[in-house]
Design a protein around this nucleic acid. Structure first.
Lengths: 210, 210
DNA sequence: AGAGTACAGTACTAGCGGTACAGTTTTAGA
DNA sequence: TCTAAAACTGTACCGCTAGTACTGTACTCT
């Protein structure tokens, strides 16, 4: 995942290791039942070491979410850049992006580990207002990013049916979040990429009619 | 929610009350951090009362999930029956069903409280194998039910684009699950029904072309 | 009127989440 | 090489929680 491991200081490496371990546990058991004892045991440090890096457990929650959203942002940015290099047309670039996105999700060896934001939304009472607002903001940013693309598309391709572009942007987030849940529940890693491709065919139908 | 309150015995009423309180807490804090003490306090009973109704906490988890899936099944059954009464045509009946479904989700006063199955999937390590299998089975049943409808549709309406009917059936679950998450996160109860209506317009595009 | 149902009361335990703080080693820069 | 900050370790403690065990009692239905 992280690209610049060697440039991290020892402390930063430990911090990252703690967060890696914590994130996996959170996605399987929820935040509350992810014990600090368990994290430090797996990380090979002591409780004091943990609290050196994080003020308390909520601080860990916040750091995890921040890192997760930052990373998602980078990934999407990269995919969009890659797609833009392959086509100047906004619709085709978006369709390429969706294919790249689906492929990326399909290439995860054990399937998608789970969306941390979705996990947080189902445990919102555990977190501070600040953390809860971060999940809202994360979804708002995704909407805006996808919406920007759709705005460019409608300028050239009049939609075949009446659509609300915010809803259409949100649908990608919804299909992804829902696809992750179904993928996990049904133990089928290929379900998520197939759902993304289905959203792609919806986009094609709306703007191209086929 | 429940229709036959007056026919329940006193014990069954208490059991239901425990489960109502527990379910709401679980959807906001996760299962692990929903304490028995908190449940009995709100229900106005003692610990003995709780353990009279449930062997242990996992038994509560199982009962909650069972009741939830049973109820979902009844609701969908009712909506399908209602839709079938309004149209003999499989496609139009399905489109009516989706409209009814969206309306029902939009009429919830405080928005959808959350999908218990999705919540469980993000905490799967907390539960016994039996409970985990129940979430898988729940999703499989939904797929089968929606798939049955789609099978009837394709017999009369050749799809305009190549589609996998299992994927298309799953997409409704995905859009619903994802829509619930987005609705909660963005504090917009109308988001979920709008996403369902968008799935509806995908279905229309695929089978009708408009 | 008797028997099961549906709890209440009380008391206990083992274990965990989380906090606090003092002490020690490691690392990096001057 | 010295030093100061960084990166921890060690230990002790508290409150809460799940769960057990048992006795007692009010209600309810036949």
């Amino acid at each position: 995942m992280s690209i610049q491991t060697q440039t991290l200081s020892k402390g930063e490496q430990t911090r990252e290791r703690i967060m890696d371990i914590a994130q996996e546990a959170v996605l399987h058991k929820g935040f509350a039942s992810t014990s600090i004892d368990e994290i430090i045991c797996e990380a090979g440090i002591t409780k004091s070491g943990f609290f050196y890096h994080f003020r308390d457990k909520n601080d860990l929650a916040k750091a995890l979410l921040q890192r997760y959203t930052d990373n998602e942002w980078k990934v999407f940015d990269q995919l969009f850049t890659q797609a833009d290099e392959l086509s100047e047309d906004p619709l085709h670039a978006f369709l390429i992006f969706l294919k790249l996105f689906a492929d990326l999700m399909g290439d995860l060896p054990n399937g998608h580990p789970g969306c941390l934001i979705a996990s947080y939304v189902y445990q919102d009472f555990l977190f501070s207002r600040e953390v809860r607002d971060m999940t809202t903001e994360g979804h708002r940013i995704w909407r805006q990013r996808f919406r920007d693309r759709l705005d460019q598309i409608v300028a050239r391709y009049p939609p075949r049916v009446e659509v609300n572009l915010d809803d259409m942007a949100d649908m990608l987030s919804a299909v992804a979040d829902g696809g992750i849940i179904l993928s996990k529940s049904l133990h089928d890693p290929s379900l998520l990429p197939r759902q993304i491709m289905q959203y792609r065919s919806y986009v094609k139908l709306v703007f191209l009619g086929n």
